[in-house]
């Protein structure tokens, strides 16, 4: 296993001081990139905790100061001026946006989204890797044709498929149900392609050896191939979970107005309203934060499986 972590690059033979300076500069550079990537989210979080006029008054303010949760409105219900709760770089964090969110079924939407995301991820891990493996390793007539067929399904703008898909879902009696969301999404071309490319890049000798030992294809697949595929499966799990979590159009097509089955993206779209111009930013941003955080967490947990050497550690030793 790759457990020999060293603080400096090991390859350079130059004087240690230079190495140190270079690595510190590199680290600073990385921190800078990381900041660029994260800053928009920092602004999102900060503004989700502001009263509506305060967002206009000081949109860039990111330092929270007491009083916590100031009233955004005067007694007659009118908004207080922005200067009352934010100025310069500081603001008084308010929970108004979050209160509005939780007044709107967000709990239910979150549960629905989580349920669908887990199911779809599990199904895709299974079916995408089965299909990817078949396309990469198994010889059967039509293998290539099937691959191009699957690839081809990604190449047409989804909007022209909406009406035919809706009619098919209706004929199958799948409208307004989770089944209608899950079944069409249980495999995806992207995932199959990902797994196929991955399986092609790992050497076939191990499987051949197992075959000679008499193991059947199922056994080889589940016992030998899948464990080797941890990095690819990790990537697939991340993408599937995230894709389902943020999925808007497929879910909308199936669920129509059935609000009890709604998911977070649909709820967020409702909050955005019909004209994006007049939306309540604090509520919308609060919804975005709630939608994004679980995904960040999922990613953080899963990225640990990207560890060099996992695929071969148990095999070549």
């Amino acid at each position: 296993m790759a457990s020999t972590s060293i603080a400096v690059p090991q390859s350079n033979q130059g004087p240690k001081l230079v190495v140190r300076i270079v690595s510190i500069a590199a680290l600073l550079f990385l921190v800078l990139i990381a900041l660029v990537q994260i800053m928009p989210f920092v602004f999102t979080v900060a503004n989700s905790f502001k009263c509506l006029p305060a967002i206009q008054e000081a949109p860039m303010a990111i330092i929270p100061l007491p009083p916590i949760d100031p009233a955004c409105r005067a007694e007659n219900g009118n908004m207080l001026p922005g200067s009352a709760t934010a100025s310069g770089a500081t603001f008084n964090p308010s929970f108004e946006g979050y209160r509005a969110i939780f007044g709107r079924d967000f709990g239910r939407w979150t549960l629905n989204t989580a349920f669908l995301s887990v199911i779809v991820t599990v199904l895709r891990l299974g079916f995408d890797s089965l299909a990817g493996y078949a396309l990469a390793r198994l010889k059967f007539p039509g293998n290539r044709a099937v691959f191009f067929l699957i690839l081809g399904t990604m190449m047409i703008p989804g909007v022209v498929l909406l009406i035919p898909r809706f009619i098919i879902l209706k004929q199958l009696g799948m409208l307004n149900s989770f089944t209608g969301i899950i079944i069409p999404l249980m495999v995806d071309a992207f995932g199959i392609f990902l797994m196929k490319q991955f399986f092609e890049s790992i050497p076939g000798e191990i499987e051949e050896a197992a075959q000679v030992d008499g193991a059947d294809r199922f056994t080889i697949f589940f016992r030998i191939v899948l464990p080797m595929a941890t990095p690819a499966l990790t990537a697939l799990a991340i993408f599937s979970f995230q894709g389902m979590w943020n999925n808007f159009l497929d879910v909308l097509l199936v669920l129509q107005g059935n609000a009890s089955l709604w998911t977070l993206p649909l709820g967020l779209a409702l909050i955005r309203g019909t004209s994006g111009e007049t939306l309540d930013w604090n509520i919308f941003l609060a919804g975005s934060v709630i939608t994004t955080l679980p995904l960040a967490l999922v990613f953080f947990v899963f990225q640990r499986y990207f560890v060099e050497g996992v695929s071969y550690s148990g095999l070549k030793g």
Binding site: P53, M79, T278
Partner: peptide, 11 residues
């Protein structure tokens, strides 16, 4: 649509 918007955001 601008009425509510201004009342809420720029009271």
């Amino acid at each position: 649509w601008i009425i509510s918007y201004l009342l809420n955001n720029f009271p």
